[in-house]
Computed example of a mutant assay.
Amino acid sequence: MTKYEYISLREKSEIKDLAAEWFHSKWGVPTEAYLECMDAYLCNETEYGWYLCLSGNQIIGGMGVIENDFHDRKDLTPNVCAVFTEEGYRGQGIAGNLLNMVVNDMKSKGISPIYLITDHIGFYEKYGWEFLCMVQGDGEPNMTRMYVHR
């Protein structure tokens, strides 16, 4: 069985540039936007962190926590964002482990509830997330599902 390493970016800040580029390659958000959020986290300006799953030196999964994940409900904050697991590693619990890591880290800092938006149905519920409402994505014509973890 392959052993994966789950970390917050504060544990391996030297891979910040690699992580920002990895997230950019998955979501198309500018690398600079990720770097700005990551720098704020690494400089302790925010507790909204970045979490990664590594296989050796390769990032195979990750997610972050930001103020708002591009939707109209600015009151529902903070948001888990950029959830991604490399296709060849899916179905092994990586995203679930990262979600649990994020929830536990945020709760340990007194940050609860937390939110996320997704079009997936049935996945997040397995990890204690509950459907909350529909939200309008910034510049998007369709509504998106908002989940909460309390």
Rank of each mutant, 00 (worst) to 15 (best):
D17T: 15
D17K: 12
L18E: 14
L18C: 13
A19G: 04
A20E: 02
A20Y: 01
A20C: 01
E21I: 08
E21R: 14
E21Q: 12
W22M: 01
W22A: 06
W22K: 04
F23T: 08
H24K: 08
S25I: 12
S25D: 12
K26P: 08
W27L: 05
W27G: 05
W27A: 02
G28H: 06
G28W: 04
G28P: 06
G28N: 10
G28E: 12
V29C: 09
V29H: 06
P30C: 10
P30D: 14
P30V: 07
P30N: 08
T31E: 12
T31Y: 09
T31R: 15
T31A: 11
T31F: 07
E32D: 15
E32H: 08
E32M: 12
A33C: 10
Y34W: 10
Y34I: 06
Y34P: 00
L35G: 12
L35I: 11
L35Q: 14
E36H: 13
E36D: 14
C37V: 08
C37N: 14
M38N: 07
D39T: 09
A40D: 14
Y41K: 05
L42E: 10
L42G: 09
L42T: 09
L42Y: 11
C43H: 13
C43A: 15
C43R: 15
N44T: 14
N44C: 09
N44A: 15
E45F: 06
T46W: 03
E47M: 11
Y48A: 01
Y48R: 05
Y48C: 06
G49F: 00
G49H: 04
G49A: 06
G49S: 11
W50F: 14
W50L: 15
Y51A: 02
L52D: 04
L52F: 13
C53K: 03
C53D: 00
L54A: 08
L54N: 13
S55L: 14
S55A: 14
S55V: 06
S55Q: 15
G56I: 03
G56C: 03
N57Y: 11
N57V: 13
N57P: 05
N57I: 12
I60T: 10
I60M: 10
I60W: 05
I60H: 02
G61Y: 01
G61L: 03
G62F: 01
M63A: 15
M63G: 08
G64D: 04
V65D: 04
V65L: 01
V65N: 03
V65G: 00
I66W: 02
I66H: 00
E67C: 12
N68T: 08
N68D: 04
N68C: 07
D69F: 03
D69H: 06
D69Y: 04
F70P: 00
F70I: 01
D72S: 14
D72R: 09
R73D: 05
R73C: 06
K74G: 10
K74W: 09
D75T: 05
D75F: 02
D75M: 04
L76H: 04
L76Y: 06
L76S: 01
T77Y: 07
T77D: 05
T77G: 01
P78A: 03
P78F: 01
P78I: 03
N79W: 09
